[in-house]
Design a binder for these strands. Structure first.
Lengths: 129, 129
DNA sequence: GCTCAATACCTCGTATAGCAATGTATAGTG
DNA sequence: CACTATACATTGCTATACGAGGTATTGAGC
């Protein structure tokens, strides 16, 4: 039927790849948020928005948190807020910390590999040949 | 019939997130391969295997190449091999070079943001509080 | 007291991407 | 003339992100 993409119509999706880029880094990012202490769902979204360039929807973060909790990398506890509504605070488990450390190391390694690959692209100088 | 995953069966997928991590970086990586000159399909796979930590299957690379070609970021030409079978060589177009540069910059920025986020995790020292 | 709005958590449906498996074509070898 | 190796291509499955919509609690205004 009609081509119903997100875009007006020129067949160009200039930032589709950017969306893809983030996939898979999200779990690590969610865990990393909690390294310094517990946070609740929406707070994690705001934290990532402020401390990195990740902007997640609620429909994104809650499945991730549940997934991580199912793997025993997180624990959660309901906390009554004074002026408001109960919040579900997430904390890293020991397994979560351990896993996050592995993730962080693998990310660093992976990131270095890719950086090396795109190094020539970012070089201002031309290729000799 | 049989559940033929990569893992024995304990419900633990310790490296599933690693697979996810790579998603979205693949297009950039494929483009980056071609920065220094043309390559054909299987050669791209081998190049990435040698120059980074990416291991792609054929069923992965060809859809990517077609996608990139459909966006006019690549061109392809059939070349008869002396001792063998015709090969389809891919080259970057001007638009491809331009896009790759943008991707590389965005990747760098994105990568820095995440690195900053996981920096505390990799620090050997403990958190004061 | 009852409605309305705000905060926070949760879930369903859809689109997309990677990838294993499988298929096709070419060309050299016994 | 079959058989194998190289290379390109496609199909089907699964997992993921995310928009849209839903529920529950609290406080303010009429």
């Amino acid at each position: 039927m009609e081509n119903k993409r997100t875009l007006p119509g020129d067949g160009e999706q200039p930032d589709r790849w950017e969306a893809q880029l983030r996939k898979g880094a999200l779990e690590m990012a969610a865990l990393a948020c909690l390294w310094q202490g517990r946070l609740y769902g929406l707070e994690i979204i705001r934290f990532l928005e402020n401390h990195s360039q990740l902007v997640l929807a609620e429909g994104t973060i809650y499945p991730i948190l549940n997934r991580l909790k199912a793997e025993d990398l997180l624990t959660s506890e309901w906390v009554e807020a004074e002026a408001g509504h109960p919040r579900k605070y997430y904390s890293l488990t020991d397994a979560g910390r351990q896993r996050l450390r592995l993730m962080a190391e693998a990310w660093t390694s992976f990131s270095k590999g890719l950086s090396h690959l795109i190094e020539p692209v970012l070089e201002p100088k031309e290729i000799p040949q």
